[in-house]
Design a protein around this nucleic acid. Structure first.
Length: 238
DNA sequence: AAGCTACCCAACCGCCGGCCA
DNA sequence: TTGGCCGGCGGTTGGGTAGCT
């Protein structure tokens, strides 16, 4: 493995910061404030590049930084924002107080990208026709056993043999729901020709309601990050 | 205990856009 | 208008370490 040089061509320190360097940098920035990073090393008495000082301050030394233990809520938000914004880590970090773009980028690359790749669901709904709940005969509730991973998936419904629409049970996806209900109405016309239903761009939280299912069918919940892996979330006989 | 492997994450690299002379 | 400087950003690297054999 190629060794990373400890000093650059001008003899400036590279590599891990020492406690003494941290102290010098923190003292300087706390006294003077952020900015003008090019002059910071000289003024703070550091043998570092200004860029390196800036990075160390922003990612490690500045106040109110949260370190480690990204919560489930934060993880969910990262996934949602990544779906919305892509790899724009600084924008994503801006929505997570105390988290840095570098930390979120690392977390995504090491943890979330792998999780996302294993998300793909098939919801098998055998014998729906026989199910007659008391409260509302046209609604059934699906609860995910791995709720967090469903939250940012998109749905692609196939092989449904009767009109259905999907209602998210919790907040945050109202606009998407409306769009998809409209799309769904268009798809219904195709469904009558015994065609496969196919609509997408639908997000929901850890549970959802499917209304209007009268005949048995199969719903594939397709994760837009990975179209191959399938797991069954719903196979109990209603 | 030692060696190996996979993973995590701090830090670097290089590009880009904004600003200013 | 142009060129240099600077800060911000995303991609990548590699050192440290935990876990496994």
């Amino acid at each position: 493995m190629k060794q990373r040089a400890k000093y650059d061509e001008d003899g400036v320190n590279k590599g891990a910061w020492t406690a003494e360097e941290d102290e010098l940098l923190a003292s300087y920035v706390n006294a003077v404030g952020e900015g003008n990073w090019t002059s910071v090393p000289k003024k703070a008495g550091l043998n570092r590049r200004g860029k390196s000082c800036r990075l160390r301050w922003l990612n490690y030394l500045r106040p109110n930084i949260k370190r480690g233990n990204i919560s489930v809520e934060e993880e969910e938000l990262i996934i949602r924002l990544h779906k919305l914004l892509g790899n724009r880590w600084s924008l994503i970090a801006g929505r997570l107080p105390g988290r840095t773009d570098n930390e979120i980028k690392n977390y995504w690359n090491t943890t979330l990208s792998k999780k996302i790749q294993t998300k793909k669901f098939t919801i098998n709904m055998p014998n729906i026709k026989a199910w007659k709940p008391k409260s509302n005969p046209l609604e059934t509730k699906i609860t995910s056993s791995i709720s967090y991973s469903i939250q940012t998936t998109e749905l692609e419904c196939t092989k449904a043999s009767y009109p259905l629409h999907v209602l998210p049970s919790t907040s945050g996806v109202i606009q998407t729901q409306q769009i998809n209900q409209q799309n769904f109405q268009e798809e219904l016309m195709e469904e009558k020709k015994d065609k496969v239903l196919d609509y997408n761009s639908f997000s929901f939280d850890d549970e959802m309601w499917i209304a209007g299912l009268e005949f048995g069918g199969e719903i594939n919940v397709v994760d837009d990050y990975d179209n191959d892996l399938v797991c069954s979330l719903f196979d109990k006989n209603l």
